[in-house]
Measured scan of single mutants.
Amino acid sequence: MDALKSAGRALIRSPSLAKQSWGGGGRHRKLPENWTDTRETLLEGMLFSLKYLGMTLVEQPKGEELSAAAIKRIVATAKASGKKLQKVTLKVSPRGIILTDNLTNQLIENVSIYRISYCTADKMHDKVFAYIAQSQHNQSLECHAFLCTKRKMAQAVTLTVAQAFKVAFEFWQVSKEEKEKRDKASQEGGDVLGARQDCTPPLKSLVATGNLLDLEETAKAPLSTVSANTTNMDEVPRPQALSGSSVVWELDDGLDEAFSRLAQSRTNPQVLDTGLTAQDMHYAQCLSPVDWDKPDSSGTEQDDLFSF
C-alpha cells in the first residue's frame, strides 16, 4: 500500500511530472533526481522514447528462454528487412502500455495491464526491452520488442512496467475491499429498513384510530445511509488515497477476473515476472533518469539497429 499512497501523494503535489519523457535525446524537461521519484509518476504514465523492432507469436506467457528466442527472431526479421526502425513513445501506467508513433502521434497499440504476463531486458541484446501480452483480438500470446538507447534504459522500462503492474494490483485490492464494505453496509441498511417496515402498523389501523404518522421519526431512520450505499452501487469504487486528485481509476471486468485468478494461483500475485536478476534490479533502481541518457562506457552510441 505504500507504493499506492506515495504515488497518489506525488501526483497530487505535481501532476505535471508524469508528462516528462525519457530517452528522447535531450528533449525532456528537468528530471527527478532518483528512481523513487520517477516511480511516483506512474499514475498518469511515464513516457519512454524507443524504437519498435516488431512482434512475434509465442506459445507460453512467460520465460527467459522463451523471450530470448522470440527477441532473436524479431531482431533477425528487422535486420533482414533493412528498413529504419519506427520511433515510438511507450506510455507506461497502472492501466497498461500505450504505444504511439512519434511522427504521426497515431495510436499503435493499447495493452491493458492485466494482459501483460512478462517483461524483460534481454541478456543477449542488452539494449532490447520486450514484453509478452495476450492479444486483445484473440487468445494468442505476442512478444513485442523495442530497441532502447542503452542497457540502462531497457532495464528502466522493464522495472517501470513491473512497478505499474504492482500498483494496478494494489488498486484492485483496495477497490475489492471498498466494494465488500459497501455491499455489507448496503445489506445491513436493508435489514434495518426491513425491520422498521415489519414493526410499522398498517396504514388502515392508523387511520381508524385517528393517529398521525410521525414524519420526524421517519426522517431519523437510516434511510439516507441505505440510499447512499445503493444509489451508486454500479459505480466502481476508487482508492481513497486518490481522493481529490485528477486521476480516475476504473476497474473493468477483465482486470477484476484476471487479478482474482492471480490472487488464487500465485504466492506473490502482485509481482510481474521479469528477466532481471536481483543485481540488475538493484543497479537500475539506483540510477537517476539522467543516467539513462548518458552514453555507455563501451563506446559511442549508434542510432541504428545494427549497432548491437
Rank of each mutant, 00 (worst) to 15 (best):
A76K: 04
W172Q: 02
L50A: 08
Q279L: 03
T120W: 02
P202Q: 11
V92D: 00
L206I: 11
G25M: 01
S175N: 04
G82R: 01
V157C: 13
P15T: 02
P295E: 02
Y114Q: 02
F165I: 02
T225E: 09
K30S: 08
E235L: 07
D293I: 06
F171H: 13
M55G: 11
I113W: 01
T231R: 02
G244H: 05
L272Y: 02
V75K: 00
L47Q: 08
Q60G: 11
S298E: 07
A221F: 08
Q163G: 14
K19Q: 11
S298R: 08
M233W: 03
L43C: 11
K79G: 01
K84M: 06
V247R: 01
A70Q: 02
M46W: 04
V167E: 15
L242M: 13
S16R: 07
R9E: 13
A76H: 02
L85N: 01
P222D: 06
D37H: 05
L42V: 14
A263D: 03
T36R: 11
V174W: 00
Q163A: 12
S260C: 12
T100F: 05
P239S: 12
E188G: 05
L251W: 06
P237N: 10
L203I: 15
D37Y: 10
V236P: 10
E64T: 12
D256C: 06
D273C: 05
E216T: 09
L141A: 13
K176V: 08
D191M: 04
E188P: 03
L85E: 01
I12A: 12
Q302A: 08
M233V: 10
T230W: 07
S175I: 04
D291K: 10
N268S: 11
A121R: 05
I116H: 01
S265D: 10
S260R: 14
K87M: 09
E170W: 05
K123Y: 14
E301N: 14
S265H: 11
N229T: 07
V207N: 07
G26R: 12
Q136G: 11
R266F: 05
A185V: 08
R9S: 09
S14A: 08
E235Y: 03
L305H: 07
E301D: 15
T100A: 08
R73A: 12
S288F: 03
V248M: 09
I98L: 10
P295H: 09
G45C: 03
L4P: 03
A80P: 00
T89R: 15
S175D: 15
K184E: 09
P202W: 12
A70E: 04
N229G: 05
E180D: 14
T209D: 14
T104S: 13
S81K: 13
I71E: 00
Y283Q: 14
G190E: 05
L251F: 04
R266Y: 02
S265Q: 06
K79T: 13
D191W: 11
A263C: 05
K184W: 09
S297A: 12
L203D: 11
Q136N: 13
L53P: 00
E178S: 14
V75F: 00
G244V: 07
D303Y: 05
P201L: 08
D252E: 05
T300L: 11
V207H: 02
R196C: 11
P61A: 06
A278Y: 09
P32R: 15
Q139R: 12
V111K: 09
W292K: 04
L99E: 01
Q302V: 11
R238V: 04
L17P: 13
F171N: 05
Q136L: 10
T267I: 15
G299Y: 14
R261V: 04
K220I: 08
K127D: 00
T230Q: 09
T36W: 14
A162I: 05
L43D: 09
A263W: 05
C199S: 12
P295M: 06
D37K: 08
D101Q: 11
R196G: 03
K30R: 15
C148T: 09
F129I: 07
G96S: 13
T160Q: 06
C286Q: 10
D234Q: 03
K62I: 03
A168V: 06
P222A: 11
K152G: 03
D2F: 04
V167T: 13
L212A: 12
T104P: 04
R73Q: 15
L262N: 03
L223P: 10
D2T: 03
T274V: 12
I113L: 02
G23S: 14
S243H: 04
K123T: 11
R73P: 01
E40L: 05
T120K: 03
T89C: 05
T300I: 08
N110Q: 14
R261A: 09
E40Q: 04
A263Y: 07
G244M: 05
V207E: 10
S205Q: 07
G82N: 01
L31M: 14
V174Y: 08
R238K: 13
